[in-house]
Amino acid sequence: MSDFRASSAHPKRGAEQHVLTKQDQRRHWFQHHGEVAKDCLRQWLSAPTATLMTILVLAVALALPSFLFTSLANITRLTASWDDENKISLYLHTDLSQSQIESFSQRLLLRADLIAVDLVDAEQGLLEFKQYSGFSDVLDSLQQNPLPAVISVLAKDTGEQSLEKLQQQLYALPQVEQAVLDLQWIKRLNAMLLVLQRAIIALSLLLACAVLLIIGNTIRLNVESRRDEILVAKLMGATNAWVRRPFLYTGIFYGVTASIAAWLIIEMSLIVMQNPVLQLSLLYQSNFKLIGLGGIGGLLLLLVGLSLGLLAAFISVNKFLNQLEPK
Protein backbone atom coordinates (compact mmCIF):
# COMPACT_ATOMS: atom_id res chain seq x y z
CA MET A 1 0.00 0.00 0.00
CA SER A 2 2.93 2.26 0.53
CA ASP A 3 3.19 3.00 -3.16
CA PHE A 4 0.50 5.62 -3.15
CA ARG A 5 1.96 7.88 -0.60
CA ALA A 6 1.43 11.35 -2.00
CA SER A 7 3.60 14.23 -1.00
CA SER A 8 2.19 15.25 2.32
CA ALA A 9 3.11 18.90 2.62
CA HIS A 10 1.66 21.67 0.57
CA PRO A 11 4.36 23.57 -1.21
CA LYS A 12 4.60 27.12 0.01
CA ARG A 13 5.00 28.37 -3.51
CA GLY A 14 4.35 26.70 -6.79
CA ALA A 15 1.24 25.22 -8.28
CA GLU A 16 -1.25 23.72 -5.91
CA GLN A 17 -0.67 20.02 -5.56
CA HIS A 18 -3.42 17.55 -4.91
CA VAL A 19 -3.08 15.76 -1.61
CA LEU A 20 -4.47 12.25 -1.36
CA THR A 21 -6.03 10.94 1.80
CA LYS A 22 -5.44 7.41 3.06
CA GLN A 23 -8.97 6.52 2.00
CA ASP A 24 -8.33 7.79 -1.54
CA GLN A 25 -5.19 5.74 -1.69
CA ARG A 26 -6.90 2.56 -0.53
CA ARG A 27 -9.74 3.02 -2.99
CA HIS A 28 -7.30 3.70 -5.77
CA TRP A 29 -5.27 0.62 -4.86
CA PHE A 30 -8.31 -1.62 -5.33
CA GLN A 31 -9.32 0.33 -8.40
CA HIS A 32 -5.91 -0.23 -9.95
CA HIS A 33 -6.01 -3.95 -9.16
CA GLY A 34 -9.37 -4.18 -10.87
CA GLU A 35 -8.21 -2.25 -13.91
CA VAL A 36 -5.05 -4.30 -14.21
CA ALA A 37 -6.94 -7.60 -13.94
CA LYS A 38 -9.40 -6.50 -16.62
CA ASP A 39 -6.53 -5.31 -18.80
CA CYS A 40 -4.79 -8.67 -18.50
CA LEU A 41 -7.93 -10.55 -19.44
CA ARG A 42 -8.34 -8.33 -22.50
CA GLN A 43 -4.77 -9.07 -23.53
CA TRP A 44 -5.21 -12.84 -23.29
CA LEU A 45 -8.43 -12.71 -25.23
CA SER A 46 -6.72 -10.71 -27.95
CA ALA A 47 -4.31 -13.62 -28.59
CA PRO A 48 -6.31 -16.69 -27.56
CA THR A 49 -4.37 -19.30 -29.56
CA ALA A 50 -0.95 -18.28 -28.29
CA THR A 51 -2.27 -18.06 -24.73
CA LEU A 52 -3.94 -21.47 -24.99
CA MET A 53 -0.80 -23.11 -26.36
CA THR A 54 1.33 -21.73 -23.55
CA ILE A 55 -1.23 -22.88 -21.00
CA LEU A 56 -1.29 -26.39 -22.50
CA VAL A 57 2.50 -26.70 -22.41
CA LEU A 58 2.45 -25.56 -18.78
CA ALA A 59 -0.41 -27.94 -18.00
CA VAL A 60 1.52 -30.93 -19.33
CA ALA A 61 4.59 -29.92 -17.34
CA LEU A 62 2.44 -29.64 -14.19
CA ALA A 63 0.34 -32.74 -14.89
CA LEU A 64 3.23 -35.15 -15.34
CA PRO A 65 4.68 -34.97 -11.81
CA SER A 66 1.21 -34.72 -10.25
CA PHE A 67 0.15 -37.81 -12.17
CA LEU A 68 3.23 -39.72 -11.05
CA PHE A 69 2.69 -38.66 -7.44
CA THR A 70 -0.95 -39.78 -7.61
CA SER A 71 0.11 -43.15 -9.05
CA LEU A 72 2.72 -43.53 -6.37
CA ALA A 73 0.18 -42.70 -3.67
CA ASN A 74 -2.13 -45.34 -5.10
CA ILE A 75 0.61 -47.99 -5.13
CA THR A 76 1.65 -47.10 -1.59
CA ARG A 77 -1.96 -47.38 -0.50
CA LEU A 78 -2.15 -50.79 -2.16
CA THR A 79 0.90 -52.16 -0.36
CA ALA A 80 -0.26 -50.65 2.92
CA SER A 81 -3.37 -52.83 2.73
CA TRP A 82 -1.20 -55.91 2.93
CA ASP A 83 -1.12 -56.32 6.65
CA ASP A 84 0.38 -59.81 6.74
CA GLU A 85 3.93 -58.71 7.10
CA ASN A 86 4.48 -61.42 9.66
CA LYS A 87 3.42 -64.16 7.26
CA ILE A 88 5.78 -66.99 6.40
CA SER A 89 4.94 -69.37 3.56
CA LEU A 90 6.26 -72.89 3.99
CA TYR A 91 6.58 -74.82 0.75
CA LEU A 92 6.59 -78.53 1.64
CA HIS A 93 8.45 -81.32 -0.11
CA THR A 94 6.27 -82.76 -2.87
CA ASP A 95 7.01 -86.34 -1.83
CA LEU A 96 5.12 -86.00 1.43
CA SER A 97 1.82 -87.86 1.67
CA GLN A 98 -1.43 -86.09 2.50
CA SER A 99 -1.53 -87.52 6.03
CA GLN A 100 2.08 -86.52 6.68
CA ILE A 101 1.23 -82.98 5.61
CA GLU A 102 -1.80 -82.80 7.84
CA SER A 103 -0.02 -84.09 10.91
CA PHE A 104 2.81 -81.62 10.23
CA SER A 105 0.34 -78.80 10.00
CA GLN A 106 -1.29 -79.88 13.26
CA ARG A 107 2.06 -80.00 14.98
CA LEU A 108 2.72 -76.44 13.83
CA LEU A 109 -0.56 -75.38 15.42
CA LEU A 110 0.82 -76.39 18.78
CA ARG A 111 3.77 -74.06 18.52
CA ALA A 112 3.53 -71.09 20.85
CA ASP A 113 5.30 -68.68 18.46
CA LEU A 114 2.64 -69.04 15.75
CA ILE A 115 -0.80 -67.48 15.91
CA ALA A 116 -2.34 -69.00 12.77
CA VAL A 117 -1.65 -71.90 10.48
CA ASP A 118 -3.38 -72.24 7.13
CA LEU A 119 -2.86 -75.29 4.98
CA VAL A 120 -3.34 -75.00 1.25
CA ASP A 121 -2.84 -78.49 -0.13
CA ALA A 122 -1.52 -79.14 -3.61
CA GLU A 123 -4.96 -79.77 -5.17
CA GLN A 124 -6.43 -76.64 -3.74
CA GLY A 125 -3.40 -74.67 -4.82
CA LEU A 126 -3.72 -75.95 -8.36
CA LEU A 127 -7.39 -75.01 -8.47
CA GLU A 128 -6.74 -71.48 -7.31
CA PHE A 129 -3.86 -71.11 -9.68
CA LYS A 130 -6.05 -72.30 -12.58
CA GLN A 131 -8.75 -69.87 -11.64
CA TYR A 132 -6.62 -66.75 -11.37
CA SER A 133 -3.73 -67.32 -13.73
CA GLY A 134 -5.63 -68.15 -16.90
CA PHE A 135 -3.26 -71.04 -17.57
CA SER A 136 -5.94 -73.68 -16.96
CA ASP A 137 -5.46 -75.33 -20.39
CA VAL A 138 -1.75 -75.67 -19.91
CA LEU A 139 -2.23 -76.97 -16.38
CA ASP A 140 -4.82 -79.49 -17.54
CA SER A 141 -2.34 -80.96 -19.96
CA LEU A 142 0.08 -81.70 -17.13
CA GLN A 143 -0.06 -85.27 -15.92
CA GLN A 144 1.07 -84.48 -12.43
CA ASN A 145 0.31 -81.60 -10.12
CA PRO A 146 3.55 -79.57 -10.09
CA LEU A 147 2.57 -77.51 -7.08
CA PRO A 148 3.68 -78.30 -3.58
CA ALA A 149 1.43 -78.04 -0.57
CA VAL A 150 1.85 -74.72 1.16
CA ILE A 151 1.34 -73.87 4.79
CA SER A 152 0.99 -70.17 5.59
CA VAL A 153 1.78 -69.35 9.16
CA LEU A 154 1.45 -66.05 10.97
CA ALA A 155 4.18 -65.38 13.51
CA LYS A 156 3.25 -64.05 16.91
CA ASP A 157 6.27 -61.80 17.15
CA THR A 158 6.37 -59.26 14.33
CA GLY A 159 9.91 -58.04 15.00
CA GLU A 160 12.11 -58.28 11.97
CA GLN A 161 14.88 -60.21 13.64
CA SER A 162 12.65 -62.70 15.41
CA LEU A 163 10.77 -63.23 12.14
CA GLU A 164 14.00 -64.05 10.38
CA LYS A 165 15.02 -66.38 13.20
CA LEU A 166 11.67 -68.15 13.00
CA GLN A 167 12.03 -68.45 9.26
CA GLN A 168 15.44 -70.12 9.77
CA GLN A 169 13.95 -72.51 12.34
CA LEU A 170 11.05 -73.51 10.09
CA TYR A 171 13.35 -73.86 7.12
CA ALA A 172 15.43 -76.33 9.12
CA LEU A 173 12.42 -78.67 9.56
CA PRO A 174 12.76 -81.77 7.37
CA GLN A 175 9.27 -81.42 5.78
CA VAL A 176 9.92 -77.88 4.60
CA GLU A 177 11.58 -77.35 1.25
CA GLN A 178 11.46 -73.58 1.37
CA ALA A 179 10.37 -71.01 3.91
CA VAL A 180 9.62 -67.61 2.44
CA LEU A 181 9.22 -64.55 4.54
CA ASP A 182 6.70 -62.37 2.70
CA LEU A 183 8.09 -59.40 4.52
CA GLN A 184 11.17 -59.55 2.36
CA TRP A 185 9.53 -58.73 -0.91
CA ILE A 186 7.35 -56.09 0.71
CA LYS A 187 10.56 -54.59 1.99
CA ARG A 188 12.03 -54.74 -1.48
CA LEU A 189 8.91 -53.21 -2.94
CA ASN A 190 8.98 -50.41 -0.38
CA ALA A 191 12.63 -49.78 -1.15
CA MET A 192 11.80 -49.62 -4.83
CA LEU A 193 8.92 -47.25 -4.14
CA LEU A 194 11.29 -45.01 -2.21
CA VAL A 195 13.68 -44.89 -5.17
CA LEU A 196 10.73 -44.17 -7.43
CA GLN A 197 9.56 -41.42 -5.12
CA ARG A 198 12.97 -39.75 -5.19
CA ALA A 199 13.05 -40.01 -8.97
CA ILE A 200 9.61 -38.39 -9.18
CA ILE A 201 10.72 -35.59 -6.84
CA ALA A 202 13.78 -34.93 -9.01
CA LEU A 203 11.62 -34.94 -12.13
CA SER A 204 9.11 -32.61 -10.46
CA LEU A 205 11.84 -30.12 -9.61
CA LEU A 206 13.05 -30.18 -13.21
CA LEU A 207 9.55 -29.64 -14.51
CA ALA A 208 8.94 -26.85 -11.99
CA CYS A 209 12.04 -25.16 -13.41
CA ALA A 210 10.60 -25.66 -16.88
CA VAL A 211 7.33 -24.01 -15.79
CA LEU A 212 9.30 -21.11 -14.27
CA LEU A 213 11.27 -20.67 -17.50
CA ILE A 214 8.22 -20.86 -19.75
CA ILE A 215 6.19 -18.34 -17.73
CA GLY A 216 9.29 -16.20 -17.14
CA ASN A 217 10.04 -16.06 -20.83
CA THR A 218 6.45 -15.27 -21.76
CA ILE A 219 6.42 -12.41 -19.25
CA ARG A 220 9.83 -11.19 -20.44
CA LEU A 221 8.46 -10.86 -23.99
CA ASN A 222 5.44 -9.13 -22.51
CA VAL A 223 7.69 -6.67 -20.66
CA GLU A 224 9.76 -6.03 -23.79
CA SER A 225 6.64 -5.20 -25.78
CA ARG A 226 5.57 -2.67 -23.15
CA ARG A 227 9.06 -1.26 -22.68
CA ASP A 228 8.19 2.33 -23.66
CA GLU A 229 5.19 2.41 -21.38
CA ILE A 230 7.28 1.19 -18.44
CA LEU A 231 10.05 3.72 -19.12
CA VAL A 232 7.59 6.61 -19.30
CA ALA A 233 5.66 5.43 -16.23
CA LYS A 234 8.87 5.09 -14.23
CA LEU A 235 9.88 8.67 -15.14
CA MET A 236 6.51 9.90 -13.95
CA GLY A 237 7.07 8.35 -10.56
CA ALA A 238 5.52 4.91 -10.88
CA THR A 239 6.68 2.61 -8.11
CA ASN A 240 8.13 -0.76 -8.97
CA ALA A 241 5.05 -2.37 -7.41
CA TRP A 242 2.82 -0.40 -9.78
CA VAL A 243 4.84 -1.45 -12.82
CA ARG A 244 5.03 -5.05 -11.65
CA ARG A 245 1.33 -5.47 -10.91
CA PRO A 246 -0.04 -6.29 -14.40
CA PHE A 247 2.76 -8.78 -15.00
CA LEU A 248 2.17 -10.49 -11.69
CA TYR A 249 -1.46 -10.87 -12.69
CA THR A 250 -0.36 -12.42 -15.98
CA GLY A 251 1.97 -14.82 -14.15
CA ILE A 252 -0.77 -15.85 -11.73
CA PHE A 253 -3.20 -16.30 -14.59
CA TYR A 254 -0.84 -18.66 -16.41
CA GLY A 255 -0.02 -20.60 -13.25
CA VAL A 256 -3.62 -21.01 -12.13
CA THR A 257 -5.16 -21.86 -15.50
CA ALA A 258 -2.34 -24.32 -16.22
CA SER A 259 -2.96 -25.95 -12.82
CA ILE A 260 -6.65 -26.31 -13.56
CA ALA A 261 -5.87 -27.79 -16.99
CA ALA A 262 -3.35 -30.17 -15.37
CA TRP A 263 -5.96 -31.22 -12.84
CA LEU A 264 -8.40 -31.99 -15.67
CA ILE A 265 -5.75 -34.02 -17.50
CA ILE A 266 -5.04 -36.10 -14.39
CA GLU A 267 -8.68 -36.70 -13.51
CA MET A 268 -9.46 -37.72 -17.07
CA SER A 269 -6.52 -40.15 -17.19
CA LEU A 270 -7.69 -41.69 -13.93
CA ILE A 271 -11.22 -42.06 -15.24
CA VAL A 272 -9.85 -43.85 -18.29
CA MET A 273 -7.77 -46.12 -16.05
CA GLN A 274 -10.47 -46.75 -13.44
CA ASN A 275 -12.19 -49.71 -15.17
CA PRO A 276 -9.09 -51.71 -16.12
CA VAL A 277 -7.73 -51.21 -12.61
CA LEU A 278 -11.03 -52.37 -11.15
CA GLN A 279 -10.93 -55.53 -13.28
CA LEU A 280 -7.35 -56.19 -12.31
CA SER A 281 -8.05 -55.76 -8.61
CA LEU A 282 -11.09 -58.06 -8.89
CA LEU A 283 -8.77 -60.73 -10.26
CA TYR A 284 -6.75 -60.36 -7.10
CA GLN A 285 -9.88 -60.51 -4.96
CA SER A 286 -9.29 -56.96 -3.86
CA ASN A 287 -11.65 -54.03 -3.88
CA PHE A 288 -8.86 -51.58 -4.66
CA LYS A 289 -10.00 -48.40 -6.38
CA LEU A 290 -7.94 -45.60 -7.88
CA ILE A 291 -8.02 -42.35 -5.98
CA GLY A 292 -7.46 -39.04 -7.76
CA LEU A 293 -5.71 -35.91 -6.54
CA GLY A 294 -8.54 -35.18 -4.14
CA GLY A 295 -9.32 -31.80 -2.59
CA ILE A 296 -6.00 -31.27 -0.86
CA GLY A 297 -3.97 -32.54 -3.82
CA GLY A 298 -5.91 -30.29 -6.18
CA LEU A 299 -5.45 -27.31 -3.91
CA LEU A 300 -1.74 -28.06 -3.62
CA LEU A 301 -1.45 -28.23 -7.41
CA LEU A 302 -3.23 -24.89 -7.70
CA LEU A 303 -0.97 -23.36 -5.07
CA VAL A 304 2.17 -24.68 -6.77
CA GLY A 305 1.00 -23.31 -10.14
CA LEU A 306 0.12 -19.95 -8.62
CA SER A 307 3.44 -19.61 -6.78
CA LEU A 308 5.46 -20.64 -9.83
CA GLY A 309 3.60 -18.10 -11.98
CA LEU A 310 4.02 -15.35 -9.41
CA LEU A 311 7.71 -16.13 -8.88
CA ALA A 312 8.45 -16.28 -12.61
CA ALA A 313 6.73 -12.94 -13.21
CA PHE A 314 8.50 -11.35 -10.27
CA ILE A 315 11.93 -12.46 -11.47
CA SER A 316 11.30 -11.39 -15.07
CA VAL A 317 10.00 -7.91 -14.26
CA ASN A 318 12.58 -7.26 -11.56
CA LYS A 319 15.39 -8.09 -13.97
CA PHE A 320 14.08 -5.35 -16.23
CA LEU A 321 13.38 -2.88 -13.41
CA ASN A 322 16.89 -3.33 -12.02
CA GLN A 323 18.30 -2.07 -15.30
CA LEU A 324 16.36 1.15 -14.80
CA GLU A 325 17.84 1.93 -11.39
CA PRO A 326 20.03 5.03 -11.51
CA LYS A 327 23.77 4.45 -11.44
Binding site: S7, V232, K234, M236
Partner: peptide, 18 residues
Protein backbone atom coordinates in the same frame (compact mmCIF):
# COMPACT_ATOMS: atom_id res chain seq x y z
CA UNK B 1 12.68 7.76 -6.26
CA UNK B 2 9.03 7.46 -7.41
CA UNK B 3 7.89 10.06 -4.86
CA UNK B 4 10.77 12.34 -5.80
CA UNK B 5 9.80 12.11 -9.48
CA UNK B 6 6.11 12.83 -8.79
CA UNK B 7 6.96 16.43 -7.92
CA UNK B 8 8.65 16.92 -11.29
CA UNK B 9 7.03 17.14 -14.72
CA UNK B 10 9.20 16.42 -17.75
CA UNK B 11 8.83 17.43 -21.39
CA UNK B 12 11.03 15.43 -23.74
CA UNK B 13 12.35 16.47 -27.11
CA UNK B 14 10.81 13.40 -28.76
CA UNK B 15 7.71 13.84 -26.55
CA UNK B 16 7.70 10.08 -25.57
CA UNK B 17 3.99 9.68 -26.14
CA UNK B 18 2.54 6.17 -26.16
Amino acid sequence: IPFHRRQIGVVFQNHQLL
